[in-house]
Design a protein around this nucleic acid. Structure first.
Lengths: 209, 209, 209, 209
DNA sequence: AATGAATGAGGCTTCATTCAT
DNA sequence: CATGAATGAAGCCTCATTCAT
């Protein structure tokens, strides 16, 4: 029945997490039932329990997965030639449904969960700190930073960038569902680019002088 | 706390909403049981149903209350003498648990709920649009804006300010619970002020020229 | 507010029972809530408890009332000049909503209640036996009976008449609600008259001879 | 009773309906709790919901079952050699607890339910109409009818027969529970046979001529 | 006498989890 | 490995009943 006669444990876990992501984004962690997930994954409820101790463990695994994805994105961002390109990579992953897996609603729910589950909170906090350090580093090294027309430290700049990222993500869940991913992305990009201009493009200031 | 041994209907509703806010912030909309709320309010479960049709209605009433509070804050912000003071008022209300009623976790949950409940989504969207218009207006009128060293429109500036506000709020739910409200506020203010400086203080740019 | 400054206990009881009848007919004994009844009566819930010990007592009082009404009808039937007129009086009371108080659905519910509440069962049984005796007596005395073309005893004839009466009543609750009381009555009368002809009009038989 | 340790879905449904019938007859549709039914069936509450969407659905299924049983009886009645035997078959099924499944109290409750639930009303009405047509047809074809000493049409005769059937059934729920099924049957048969004599045995009339 | 706010037990239903097959 | 029937605790909600005013 499965694509291959052999499903490794990892494949199954992935399959289940994929389904869980859909359900969690659609209904939220606690509104999505194990049955929902099993149906979405096309398997039986019992099978989920062979791969995850309980629902909590699915949520944790999901958070872990989120962490890995963010780290991957960070890695890709680090390898971009310019700071603006790095930012665009980060932005696309963080803000948009374009990214294959990260759905806004899921992330908002993840933060909501973090607010009452210290384990999740620590994980998300870890992701955040690593990302912050990564971005701060990128900014500090970038030549664009040297000529910026303001006195913000790289760390402050990174903080602002992430704050705006999260803010746009929160905003995104309010969009009528009819908007396409592309439309969402465009609207968000407009705002974010405003911040980038402020932070990294001194010529406006120069014009003023 | 109650002025008289007589609780009018409005008082009861308030009492219940107050309790619900605590429970919702502590456990989330759907994890908080009606029993939790009644216990927190010190009344019986059944009594809640004399004042609210069902749990959904409690959530809606809460969202309404949030709306009213935000509008009040907006009004106060409008009356501040300078733009920066307006922003500080908005910031304090939007970002901090200092504000008597608005708890970060509740707002994050509200957005999570909005992502699946169109009625809540519309309400939150309405709040957002009114607030945005209000702030855009404030910015457009403010003398500080005239000399800013960038090309962002008032609307874009407002968008950024709100995005950062939401972003800090999301960030706030990750704080270890031990932080005092004052500490949270300070940390958030540091970031936000960075943005304000970028937007409204051209002298840095001037210094650069 | 009440028609008279003084409401005797009896008046209140009647008022409540009147309202209860409406509610019971509309929703059934156990589906009708005390609140429904109080609202229908235009009084407060608590007041019902001043006149009736509990809901059970309201149901019992209702059954009692039913008993009294049936006995009244029986008395009127007894005074009719002919047997057929007696039967018509009984029929009208037993089968039709035309009668001011007896609603089919209520009676069916009363029997359903009787099937599990021995006290109600005994009361209904008592009504039935008295009525049966009354009707048997009427039949035995009636001159029409003497020339009937069959060998049924007056008791058997009464039994049949009541059975058909109950049967029509049960049938009545299935009628679409749009039928007027008059239409219901007409349809039921047609059937019942068939039985009366069989029982009391020998000329058909004569025609056969 | 179960043929195998394996219960197919259909078996479970039957088991639940069997238990529900007992509970409904004992307490009525709305007084019987889902817990009552599960206990009577010897299963857990939750399991009922695997086989029925909700309590309403159990009631509907029960009504359906009643419909099927009545239709079966009608079929059997149709195949009886004489009209009187047909009637006896109908009678036994309609009036007596002897019939394995049809309990008087259940049927009275079914009609009570029908008076408020249009869906149930339609179903019961459908059963009634089919039965009526079937019986009318039987009567019209029966040789016994040709020589009857009255002017009732087959349809009127069928109407009377069903009315008496329902009437006896209603009467049946008042019996003290101590009566055996056989005793009930005998008493009811006595009445019903009176009607049959009136309708189908012309010799009495003839004797009169 | 009358009100209606308040209580809390109990009903319906869902769902995480287990386990026999 | 996989299934899905089965369990039962827990959640939402209703409603008979009480009682302070």
């Amino acid at each position: 029945m499965s694509q291959h006669p052999i499903d490794t444990g990892a494949d199954r876990r992935t399959q289940i997490l994929e389904a869980a992501m859909v359900c969690f984004a659609k209904r939220g962690f606690h509104q999505a039932s194990m049955h929902d997930i099993s149906a979405e994954a096309g398997i039986s409820v019992g099978l989920i329990y062979r791969y995850f101790e309980n629902k909590e463990a699915v949520i944790s695994a999901m958070a872990d997965r989120h962490k890995k994805e963010i780290h991957e994105v960070l890695e890709r961002a680090r390898q971009a030639p310019t700071l603006l390109e790095s930012l665009e990579i980060l932005f696309t992953a963080h803000c948009c449904e374009n990214s294959p897996k990260v759905l806004s609603a899921f992330v908002v729910d993840l933060y909501a969960e973090a607010s009452r589950n210290p384990q999740v909170a620590n994980l998300v906090l870890g992701v955040l700190q690593t990302s912050m350090e990564g971005l701060t580093d990128l900014i500090a090294r970038a030549p664009e930073t040297q000529k910026s027309a303001h006195d913000l430290t790289p760390s402050e700049m990174a903080e602002l960038i992430f704050a705006v990222g999260r803010g746009m993500l929160m905003r995104d869940v309010l969009q009528p569902a009819e908007l396409t991913a592309e439309e969402r992305r465009t609207r968000q990009l407009a705002v974010t680019r405003g911040l980038w201009r402020l932070l990294f493009q001194p010529e406006n200031a120069a014009a003023y002088a």
